[in-house]
Design a protein around this nucleic acid. Structure first.
Lengths: 301, 301
DNA sequence: TGAGCTTTATTGTCTAGGACAAAAAGCGTC
DNA sequence: GACGCTTTTTGTCCTAGACAATAAAGCTCA
């Protein structure tokens, strides 16, 4: 079996580091040091790709590339989360139950996890389930990934199974005459679907008519969807991973595309620094969602 | 309201054309012709972005950029699908029912679509439902998009609602001792989830223990997942949109990462030209899926 | 000590134009 | 019409430079 050759495109795919960044680092920090093929194109040895993955992971934890690429591999291995870890030290019986749920994922017991979550949903009801189980678990998976106790594929499994639970729960909600009509989606490059589903569950519970477009709808098409569905509201989700700087411009552009009667609601960890404006509502937490909907119903009685 | 300014990154996001391609076209064909900001960076006027979107759409229909960018906008508007359209001219009562289902999506009546599909699922059973309803509808949505009778957001709505139906159906399948154990996912940049779900439904029906990781799992993590779950099989899906040239290398790399006892199965429209090999099975159609699983059970009795 | 402001360092994204190989089209032959 | 070969088309990769957004560091003041 030949050693797999990593082109710069393959490394970009595997590490999430853009081609520009990979070339820049090589120029600036002297790492990576890929070989060249017959055509002068970079070939990355597997070890360097692996190292780049570690570096990327530490960057996501708040470290800076300059230090990481200067440090020896051994120094690197010892590094942990660097960001001001605002861990809520809540340890009660509830907390223990949640830890057990995550334990099931870590043991890769999908069936047991689903079963336990179903039970929890039945006991808590959908609203509490979303706010006090799914939301908390999601945050906890994030921190677990940061401190290295969760692998990527474990997070994938968690996300996929939890998405199924929420979609199933949403599907069982009663139909009938519902308002307002809300188009739910995210912009291109924003693939985080879980937050969107949590919001959908809460909105549907309050009687909204939700039109889920999935993630990554181009802006123009969001506008057209709002028009075609005669949406009262378009709700977007931005995760904390989404580049902050782009959000403002995106919102402005989208507002220009929306029909005059359609409001824009934005939520998710990514919009913490966005401020509300004309026809723009910022949902800073899941509680805001329910409150916002009640406001809307009150003013559009 | 200021006119929204499109940076090259924004245009890439909106059109799906890479920055390299946008700059290359400008150089080579004289279009687009963006202005420049104070820093010399490209600013694209909204009309050009809109035109680029049309061009991209026509390219997806088989046209070539050289012609499209030389043609006048009026000529462009008249163009339709160009690819050898292998439309099966099946028009029976079944066909009419499917057309009605798509009609519901086009009328944006999500509730009616879900209801009709639920009924169909109950009548046909999951296997027929997947093979003769979902698979056919998916193909038809593809061609409808190509001939312009489906908008992007309508396709998004179709995909999202259909995903929900399948996930729900899968969830209701009985548990118990199941084999083989199959990890299902796709590689980074492959975000098509529907094919994966169809396969999962068929495999689960045959008694397999499916571990769904969602889409876009990095290769290393697919390997780790296979290991951690002691998977008998890893099943990957490649849509026709996935760059053909990368598939071969990806498969080779992934095989190197998989434990020795784990087989790799690949399916989807993207693998039509891939040929089977040691520990690699190519599923060219949904029927192959069921057959492959029965083979496996027979040889691993 | 800590909050807020200013300066400096770091880092990613953009620019230009050139080169080459993979894919598609065109063409000849069976 | 189906196959193999040649030419054209087209996307991706290359180098190397510039600048602005972000984070860190230094400073002032309460």
């Amino acid at each position: 079996m030949e050693t797999p050759a990593f082109s710069i495109a393959a490394v970009e795919r595997d590490t999430g580091l853009s081609k520009d960044v990979l070339r820049m680092w090589e120029r600036r920090y002297g790492f990576p040091t890929p070989g060249r093929d017959a055509n002068g194109e970079r070939i990355y040895p597997p070890e360097q790709v692996e190292h780049l993955r570690r570096v990327k992971r530490l960057m996501d934890l708040g470290h800076r590339p300059g230090k990481l690429l200067a440090a020896s591999p051994e120094t690197l291995a010892a590094l942990g989360p660097r960001r001001a870890a605002v861990r809520e030290a809540e340890a009660g019986p509830e907390d223990e139950a949640l830890a057990e749920l995550l334990g099931l994922i870590k043991q890769h017991d999908a069936a047991a996890y689903q079963h336990a979550m179903q039970q929890r949903l039945a006991r808590q009801g959908l609203q509490d389930f979303v706010q006090h189980t799914v939301a908390v678990l999601t945050r906890r998976v994030g921190t677990a990934w940061e401190d290295g106790s969760f692998e990527v594929f474990e997070e994938h499994l968690f996300t996929e199974l939890t998405k199924r639970l929420l979609r199933q729960a949403i599907a069982t909600l009663p139909g009938g005459a519902r308002r307002p009509r809300i188009v739910l989606t995210s912009v291109p490059d924003e693939e985080h679907a879980l937050g969107l589903l949590m919001v959908e569950a809460l909105l549907a519970l309050e009687g909204a008519d939700c039109i889920p477009l999935g993630t990554q709808t181009p802006l123009q098409d969001i506008g057209r969807a709002a028009d075609a569905h005669r949406a009262d509201i378009v709700a977007l989700s931005f995760s904390s991973a989404f580049p902050q700087r782009q959000i403002g411009a995106l919102i402005t552009q989208l507002q220009a595309l929306l029909p005059g009667h359609t409001e824009l609601w934005v939520g998710g960890d990514g919009v913490a620094r966005v401020s509300a404006a004309e026809r723009l509502r910022v949902l800073h937490s899941l509680d805001d969602t329910t409150a916002a909907l009640r406001d809307w119903l009150a003013t559009h009685g």
